[in-house]
């Protein structure tokens, strides 16, 4: 500051310095506090024409005029008393895991480890499995997005949505951590004629009129290969027959399931001989198959 500085210039200079060094604007900076004391003292000194003259004449020193400053705000603000001016409500509350997550990341969240080896991430894939592969089990090769191939063993009796975990086939770990797992969700395609029902399998089995009426042995396709099944004479359409143990093979401690065949009588192309026979056929016990459905019928066209 020049010896001939005007009072206005002095106060401008003071404000500029004070804004930078005010201790309450610089918490934790001890130097700011001592600098500010010097600045404040100098301002007081230089703002008083008489003292300024004496200082300029070397009669008093700069520190001599410092009046005892009361404790600055920062002495309280960062401590317990400052809570009442904190962001949140004045009452004391503890830390929550979410708090300061933007600064400390996840280190206070749950049981995550703050440091050390970190296991790689699990990676999720889907694999579409053929119906029979899911029933009987199979090994299928899966090509991963990064070019790796995985031989995935589809276990016997895999059901839709099942997730296979291949240990150590996921993302790489950090700082010596182990690989994550590959999690493979299996989607099972529908079959032309089989339907899964837990361990059982159902199908609709078309039979001819003579097979249904006279009974006999017919060949039924099962997931384990064709099996001969006896159809009782006089089996109606809709009759359900069971082939024990011909469903999903035994797996994971579960007994093998059954195969349920629902008969559907098919007439096929019109047969002149059969039609001729039926025209002259007098049933021994005439019956109305719709008897159970009978209500007050309004004759159509009447």
């Amino acid at each position: 500051m020049a010896r001939d500085a005007t009072p206005a210039a002095i106060s401008r200079a003071y404000r500029k310095l004070a804004k930078r060094h005010h201790p309450d604007l610089n918490p934790g900076n001890a130097e700011a506090e001592s600098r500010f004391k010097v600045i404040a003292a100098a301002n007081q000194l230089l703002s008083d024409p008489e003292k300024r003259t004496r200082f300029d004449n070397g009669e008093i020193d700069a520190e001599g005029q410092e009046r005892a400053r009361p404790p600055p705000y920062r002495d309280y603000a960062a401590g317990e008393p400052g809570r009442r001016y904190g962001r949140a409500a004045p009452q004391a509350e503890g830390w929550s895991a979410d708090e300061f997550g933007d600064i400390f990341g996840t280190m206070f969240r749950g049981d995550r480890r703050p440091s050390g080896p970190q296991r790689g991430a699990d990676q999720h894939y889907t694999l579409v499995a053929d119906f029979l592969d899911a029933v009987n089990g199979a090994t299928r090769r899966l090509t991963l997005p990064d070019g790796r191939t995985l031989d995935v063993k589809i276990p016997v009796g895999t059901s839709e949505g099942h997730i296979l975990r291949l240990r150590g086939q996921g993302g790489g770990g950090a700082q010596g951590g182990s690989h994550g797992d590959a999690l493979i969700e299996i989607h099972v395609t529908a079959h032309r004629f089989y339907q899964r029902d837990g361990s059982d399998i159902r199908l609709v089995l078309p039979v001819s009129l003579p097979e249904a009426a006279l009974g006999g042995l017919v060949e039924v396709p099962t997931p384990g290969g064709p099996v001969r099944m006896r159809i009782p004479a006089g089996s109606d359409s809709g009759t359900e027959l069971r082939l024990r143990g011909r469903g999903v093979p035994a797996h994971g401690g579960k007994a093998p399931g059954d195969l349920y065949a629902t008969l559907r009588v098919t007439l096929g192309k019109p047969d002149p001989g059969l039609m001729e026979f039926l025209r002259h056929w007098k049933p021994e016990h005439p019956a109305d198959p719709r008897q159970a459905m009978e209500t007050d019928v309004i004759e159509a066209g009447a």
Binding site: D24, L25, P27, G28, R74, A77, A78, G79, G82, R83, Y85, G86, R87, A88, W95, E99, F100
Partner: peptide, 13 residues
């Protein structure tokens, strides 16, 4: 300032 002192209090804790 209140945010600054809040943070400093938290850091202290």
């Amino acid at each position: 300032l209140d945010q600054l002192y809040d943070l400093r209090r938290r850091m202290r804790e």
